[in-house]
Simulated assay, not measured.
Amino acid sequence: MTETPRTGDRLVSVIVPVYNAGSFLERTISSIQKQTHRELEIILVDDGSTDGSGELCDSLAEKDSRIIVVHQRNSGIAAAQNAGLERAHGEFITFCDNDDLMAPRLVQRLLSALIENAADMSCCRWRNPGASTAEAEMHAHADDPPGPTLIIDDPAQAYQRVFSLAHRRLAAAELRYFSEANWGKLYRASLWRSVRFPEGRYAQDVAVSLDLYLQMRRVASLADALYYWIQRPQSVSHRTKQTQYFRDIVRAHGRVFELSLQAGIVPARAYGGLMTLRLERRSVRTAEDERLFEDDARYVKSLLRRLTLRQRILCSAFFSLRRVETAVYRLTIHRRQ
């Protein structure tokens, strides 16, 4: 697939929240600079880094006029993403974590698929290599031919219904699956006009997911694995969790749960998120933790009462299957180096 005049002059804003990215930041930004689609606005939001990452952003901006650097005091990833959205001028928007990699044709393929199919969003698959092998793996797949593209006309329904790996495999529904993250996706900028991430909270991407999907009429889902998601033991998602962390997850999924029911969608995925309550219970250490947990327990109970018996059985079955898959995942993917 080659770039055509229809896509070559369309500006794409790439938002990268940056916080103490260390030695990984430069190769991340390099992977964005090497995109075959050249009409980019690369917005690096330095969220109060203390390891020299902010200075590196400034240095790279001096060499590439497409790079815009925003410095702010440390306020969290949601605030950094929002700052990027405020500065974005592109007709289309994508995100990249500050230690991941984008295959050279990621933007080109997503943009072509989005425009050719009159979609509101396009998305690709991803690979999950260890940090030490990511670049080699990306180079090894550099010449992979384009795969099929699936057009999804009910993205909010797909997001809530298709998330179990076993279900995806048995029903041949992999391309109807959306990750919780905002990376690996290209959005029409108009989707973000009234949507911003809740600041100071975890699971900020989950919290806005249905706000976005309910606006979409069509999504182009590519089989191509073009994003390299690199997990590390020191990342936030792998650290010891406090009660507030789990509370944020429960509340984010609670919002999605309510929006799903309002739209007539069975909130199967959100139900699984609400079950994070059991982890919140285990995290209780103080009287304040206990208060937060009891408040969330009441909240979850009130939401579950709104399910019909059929909906509850369906949600519970998907959740049980997902728990098994998550256990396997933690024993494999999280151990990669």
Score class of each variant (00 low, 15 high):
E86W: 06
P17C: 05
Q234Y: 12
F319G: 07
I43C: 08
G184I: 02
P145E: 14
S13N: 02
Q244M: 05
V14R: 02
R330D: 10
Q72N: 04
D205Y: 08
G184H: 06
Q234P: 00
E39V: 01
D99H: 06
F95E: 00
Q204H: 07
Q244F: 05
V195C: 13
R291N: 10
D97P: 00
R278V: 11
L261D: 09
V284A: 08
R27I: 09
F163A: 07
N182D: 14
N98I: 00
V266Y: 02
R291M: 10
I68N: 13
L101P: 00
R255S: 10
R281I: 02
S190T: 15
A79L: 03
P267Q: 09
A225S: 11
A140K: 03
S132G: 05
R278C: 11
A80C: 03
L222T: 01
N20F: 01
D64C: 02
D144Y: 05
R330P: 02
Y213V: 05
V16N: 02
R38T: 11
S31M: 08
D143T: 08
W126K: 07
K34P: 05
S194M: 08
I77D: 03
P198T: 08
A158N: 13
Y187H: 14
L186F: 07
L314H: 11
R322E: 15
I313C: 06
A134C: 01
L321Y: 01
L11C: 02
L170M: 14
R73W: 08
T276G: 13
R305M: 11
F95R: 00
A207I: 07
C96N: 15
L110I: 02
D224C: 03
L292T: 08
L331N: 13
S53T: 07
H167M: 11
C96I: 11
I29F: 02
V70L: 11
G200N: 12
H253C: 10
R161L: 15
E116Y: 08
S132W: 11
A268F: 03
